[in-house]
Design a protein around this nucleic acid. Structure first.
Lengths: 118, 118
DNA sequence: CCTATGTTTCGATACATGTCGAAACATCGA
DNA sequence: TCGATGTTTCGACATGTATCGAAACATAGG
């Protein structure tokens, strides 16, 4: 995974509103899961996110685009609405980078340069 | 950990050059560790980083400030030079956030909303 | 076909970021 | 004290970002 792409993903997480979106989507559903009904309060269409965040629809759309373009989120048109969900694998790549870096660090448990590298 | 601080840390990681710095510093040393001598190629003073990245000294200084202000990196003047090193705990907080989010996700292994929540 | 609802695109505005070179600051060694 | 070396701050510039409202697009339902 090239550093440019990792940096782009980290950039998508570099805004509090987008972190809120992540949290909400992670407490939410895969597409087509049972919980996509609104009654559960778990539905993840763009408008609901905007209401939660107190942002204009256009601003939310902008944030979703950021998250989508770097692969952290995916969307699907579903009638009038656009449902969105997290791609956990993308977040996994970020964790892998961070964990990998720390494990190289001498302070890592088992600690020596490159021991248990990766 | 408030979202604002997490976002600030992610922002510090949102640039490829800064990720390179992280990688280099993680392959490097805690302050005062034996490997701070240059012979090992492991020394982490600002100038060496600049040479590696091909950036002007002032630009490197700017990047280090970013990483320092959000707690990801720490520095210490050591004679003429400024040695810098990673704070692994800060990276750990980012991993914790990501891992925590993913574990909430229905696709997480063991997978149901909030099962094995944290 | 028309209207209502939800989303995206467009244009504008204010602010932040990355980069450089020049100048200032800090420390060492003669 | 003076010069050499390393780092930071300053000013400038170009580019990117967050936000909004208005307008355009998409879909559902009468």
């Amino acid at each position: 995974m090239p550093l440019d792409r990792l940096a782009a993903m980290f950039k998508a997480l570099s805004h509090p509103q987008r972190l809120k979106i992540i949290q909400k989507l992670c407490g939410c559903c895969a597409p087509g899961a049972a919980c996509t009904t609104r009654a559960d309060g778990l539905r993840c269409c763009a408008g609901d996110l905007g209401a939660d965040l107190g942002l204009a629809a256009s601003t939310v759309s902008h944030h979703l685009k950021e998250l989508r373009q770097c692969g952290i989120m995916e969307v699907q048109r579903c009638g009038q609405r656009v449902e969105c969900w997290i791609n956990p694998a993308a977040l996994g790549q970020l964790t892998a980078f961070l964990a990998g870096a720390v494990s190289m660090h001498p302070a890592a448990t088992g600690g020596g340069h490159g021991r248990s590298k990766r």
